[in-house]
Simulated scan of single mutants.
Amino acid sequence: MERLSFLDLSGTALKELPSSIDNLIGLDYLRLNNCENLVCLPDNLYKLKSLERFDLKGCSRLEIFPEILETMEMLRELDLSGTALKELPSSIDNLIGLRSLTLNNFEKLFTAIGGRPVKQKHLHGLSSLKKLDLTESNLEDLPTTIK
Score class of each variant (00 low, 15 high):
L85R: 04
G125W: 03
N94I: 04
E16I: 00
K131T: 14
I25Y: 00
D79Y: 10
L123N: 00
R3S: 15
G26D: 09
N34V: 01
S10H: 06
L98R: 05
S100K: 15
L126Y: 08
I64W: 03
S137W: 06
D133H: 01
H122V: 04
F65V: 10
D93S: 15
S91M: 04
L38T: 07
L48D: 11
P18T: 08
D141T: 15
S81F: 06
L9I: 11
G97Y: 08
L56I: 04
F65A: 02
L38V: 09
L51Y: 10
P42F: 07
D43G: 13
P42G: 07
K147S: 10
K147R: 11
E52I: 00
K47Y: 01
P117L: 09
Y29Q: 14
E52H: 07
Y29S: 14
N94Q: 14
L27C: 10
P18D: 13
N34E: 12
I92N: 05
N104F: 00
Q120S: 08
C35L: 08
L45Y: 01
K49G: 00
L126H: 10
L17E: 10
D55I: 04
K121S: 14
I113K: 06
T71W: 02
I92P: 03
E73H: 13
S127M: 04
C59P: 09
K15N: 10
I146M: 13
R3V: 00
F110N: 02
R53A: 12
T83D: 08
T144H: 01
I21E: 09
S90Q: 12
L24D: 08
Y46A: 13
E2Y: 02
I146D: 01
T12S: 15
V118H: 01
R3Q: 14
K57M: 11
E107T: 04
T135D: 06
D28R: 12
G82R: 05
F110W: 13
C40G: 00
F106R: 06
L78F: 06
R31D: 12
L17V: 11
N44A: 08
L38P: 05
S91D: 05
F65D: 04
D8L: 03
P143I: 07
T145M: 09
S19V: 12
N37M: 08
S91I: 05
Y29V: 13
R3D: 12
Y46M: 00
S91W: 02
G115R: 03
L9N: 11
